[in-house]
Design a protein around this nucleic acid. Structure first.
Lengths: 231, 231
DNA sequence: CGTCGCTTTGAATACGGTCAATTTTTGTGG
DNA sequence: CCACAAAAATTGACCGTATTCAAAGCGACG
């Protein structure tokens, strides 16, 4: 059995209500892939030919606009599927996926997926569910960016990241992601300058300790308040 | 045969690569619904219990935020599916769907859909494709709102609407949607004041003729230029 | 030790939001 | 059909948030 992280893969939404035996079969038609830091799983506008589940490392999904602006749409952590558009016919990847550190992933080719979707309808239903959640997430983020101030959006984003990858320590919640100010700015739709200013301000208020590539939330409740407060 | 608009329903993405006979079966497990103007098909946060395809009329999908702001996410025209989250288990509608005029729709209950998805795997694959497109659309719009100015976003939105429902006439392209300035503002994430100013400006430049509930694009190329120009 | 990239900070500016007053349109009822 | 009330749209003035540009600081790494 070549897939050591299977135990965790089994628990994810995509495989819900599928018997261990069937999951085993499904995993057999996948292969494993290893990526070094900075390598691309795929590039935006490439024909979507594979579907991935990240089993270790971190991946950034970015979208660039016609006029060269970049947006960092999300950070993928284990055990999350990405490249889900490959599930649909004739699509191109709407984003680029780049390894932020060395990564491993389970991969299915497009043809393998399509056979699986036909053979295991529950898998298709789970995929529908995952995509429906994505639609909701982006509708939500669209609404946020359209109606809320940068400070609040940044607070929400950091809380979201903390939720994804945060680790409780005596000093506070540590968020261990190699994200620059520029990256954070792209995620909430602002400039690196504004992000820097806000983080400085929070630091001076004792809410966070913002190091390079790492951040410690000293007083989560303060962020929550900023994220939720009226006006 | 209770479904007169079937001929058009058959052509949509959801039923692609499904035989007419199967489509017939699928439609038999639906029922038809009529709505008066202003009535709601469903409300945001309601448990998602039905899936719709609009066969006549127009429907607005809105999302309201915790602090009471409203966003108009999209306008549904025939023959478009909506309420797709009902395809997934245990979801709530992320938006409200309100008839903008009197409407008819084909409706499936959640249980009916789920049986159909199992019975017709191709249907599930098509649903995946539709949802994947939605994800892309909102990623795109998220990127737009994060990086572009209001004037350009408004130009893009109007062009999009023209593409959905525009009719060529001797005077220009007529967009026949009962959208107020407030509605347009919600769609592009700004205020009705800003929309009003921009439309006035375009009108004085001879680009459009903006009436109430109706708009004539006199010089589409001008809008395209605003929508695409650098900076 | 020096360079390079990232971050911080300041100052000026602009875009768009807010508020308020006015005008125009729509719809309703006499 | 007109009059009036209500709703929607326009426009101006002011202001605040966030962007832009520039310069300096800091830290990592060869």
């Amino acid at each position: 059995m070549p897939f050591e992280p299977v135990s965790r893969v089994e628990e994810i939404t995509l495989f819900k209500n599928i018997s261990p035996g069937d999951i085993h079969l499904i995993l057999q038609s996948a292969h494993q892939k290893r990526m070094d830091a900075e390598e691309f799983f795929f590039l935006q506008d490439d024909p979507a030919e594979a579907f991935y589940i990240l089993t270790s490392g971190k991946v950034r999904l970015t979208q660039y606009t016609a006029d060269g602006q970049q947006l960092l749409l999300r950070v993928i952590v284990p055990v999350t599927p990405f490249g889900a558009v490959a599930l649909a016919d004739h699509e191109r990847y709407p984003v680029s996926a780049q390894a932020m550190e060395s990564c491993t992933a389970v991969v299915w080719s497009k043809s393998a997926i399509q056979q699986l979707l036909i053979r295991f309808p529950q898998l298709a239903m789970n995929a529908v569910k995952i995509l429906a959640e994505h639609v909701q997430e982006f509708q939500q983020r669209f609404t946020e960016i359209a109606t809320q101030r940068v400070e609040r959006r940044l607070a929400r984003m950091i809380l979201r990241l903390a939720h994804q990858t945060g680790v409780k320590t005596p000093r506070g919640v540590e968020v261990n992601l190699p994200l620059s100010r520029q990256d954070l700015a792209e995620m909430v739709g602002t400039t690196l300058y504004t992000v820097s200013r806000i983080l400085s301000q929070w630091e001076s208020q004792g809410l966070i300790h913002a190091g390079r590539e790492k951040m410690i939330i000293l007083y989560p409740h303060g962020l929550v308040k900023i994220a939720e407060e009226e006006t």
